[in-house]
Amino acid sequence: MSKPSIIKTITRKRGARSFGGNVTLFIFLTFMALLYLFPVIFMANNAFKPLSEQLKFPPDIFVNTPTLENFMDLGELFSNSLVPFSRHLFNTLFVVAVGTAGQVVFASMAAYPLAKFDFAGNEFLSKIIVLSLMFTTAVTSVPNYVIMSRLGLVDTYLALILPAFSSSLGLYLMKNFMTQVPSSLIEAAHIDGASEMLTLWGVVMPAVKPAWITLLIFSFQSMWGVTGNIFIYKESLKPISYALQQIASVGIARQGVTAAVSLIMFLIPITLYIFMQSNVLETMSTSGMKD
């Protein structure tokens, strides 16, 4: 007699909470979304404002007389520059592609033994990783430059790519996720005769797919904005963000062009993210244990 009534209360309670929850959730998400979107809306509108509106204070959020003149000016600037736009674009794409791929591969490789092997020095290495997370290259430009020039990497793509390979954020992220992979899954792979290499790429990596997709996004995002102005001096090797920054640095007269540039630099990663998350991030990890 008492049991069904308990079940009823629980069911009713849950129903009530989830309806109320949904409404709160919707309101909360909408509110947050508006806060998040505000700078984007402003930026997008800014890119289409003529100069007279750009300089208005306080600025209007929405554009009054939309114009494409900013984008035209941008095109003109690039067609007059010494190094073609496509070259800068290629530089960035190359550095980002190689750097991101390498970062994911090397971080995963290093994370696997740290997460799952039992060896002397594991603890110590893990502490080093956390320490290196706190290390910002922003404050050690001098020693960084000295090292790069000793290695002969100044004015090469490698100066931008190699540091990404040893990123500690990626390693830390992957390690944290890999410790969550059941050891029995790895043992099973070993019993079936898989080598460590095969275990890593065939068993562990599919199990932590959300983690490396996330790392891929982070890595892309952080490398996308690389300007390389300490290590790259040849104009033809400069990445696109540098070229765009040069345009922006001229000052107030270029404010319209800068707004156009900002929009472009924002749109590319966001497009990539939308593509990635609808194709890949959706997959729930089901490749775990079936027991």
């Binding site: 979107l37 995002q221 922006a248 924002f266």
Partner: peptide, 22 residues
Amino acid sequence: RNVARTVFFIPIIMGTSIATAH
């Protein structure tokens, strides 16, 4: 949901951003 996720991704781009350069 995908729209919501994309919106929540914006701060990451803004965070490292060239977007606010000017």
